[in-house]
Amino acid sequence: MSKIITSENVSVYYGKQRAINNINLDFNVHNITALIGPSGSGKSTYLRCLNRMNDLINNVTVSGSIKLNGKDIFSPQMDIVNLRKTVGMVFQQPIPFPFSIYENVAYGLRLNGIKEKKILDVRIEKALRQSALWEEVKDSLHDNGFSLSGGQQQRLCIARVLAVEPEVVLLDEPTSALDPISSAQIEDTLVSLKNEFTFIIVTHNMQQASRISDWTAFFLDGKLEEYSATKKLFLNPDKEKTSDYLNGKFG
């Protein structure tokens, strides 16, 4: 199976404090990979390296190498805008812009200079269908994004990312602010889309990781403790700490 992202010896420092330590982790294309671990284990920090969102925080240094399709994302030749178009991100809280549903999804497209209404209409419908929101909003595309429920808002945010047609989508605990039904809808959406995209999802919810992911990485104290196929990791983990965490002995 081909790798879309490979990372070697990735460490992140907040000031002088090391948040994550020498992570080596590769991601298979068109798979869902879950990053699990207790709070403060560095999984979100690691995720934010993959599209260089850590650049936005002062005082953060990242060392090591991360390659996207074989190209080093930290090299000076890497266009950070293109990187973020290729590696999209969904955040923990649903954050629609205070625009209409249509304009929310159109935002990324307009950034790319797409102005023609026909193309916009097609791409927006496609993205909303992909995020399974189309049927619910097709008659109210010009309502404000905030008029939607929390789960719908998060699917709107997913549609906004998908409209840009990224190859990889990073999800930082996308369902932790949502109710179980909305969460299940988003899980279904991700599973149904994995032939088109590669998903990397940080989650606190171990059941969610075991339900939807193909691979699972277990982070502990800023280190990658164990990484293997989800079934193997959940049924027969190599390390005792993994087994303890999965059984709820800590974390």
Binding site: N51, M53, L56, V81, N82, R84, K85, G88, M89, F91, Q93, I95, F97, Y107, G108, R110, L111, N112, C157, R160, V161, V164
Partner: peptide, 23 residues
């Protein structure tokens, strides 16, 4: 204007200037 908006905009591949005038 919430700080989140800026992050989301940048994560969608917007430049700083695009974030300023489009959002």
């Amino acid at each position: 204007v919430p700080q989140h908006y800026r992050q989301v905009s940048l994560s969608l591949g917007a430049t700083k200037w695009q974030t300023i005038y489009k959002l």
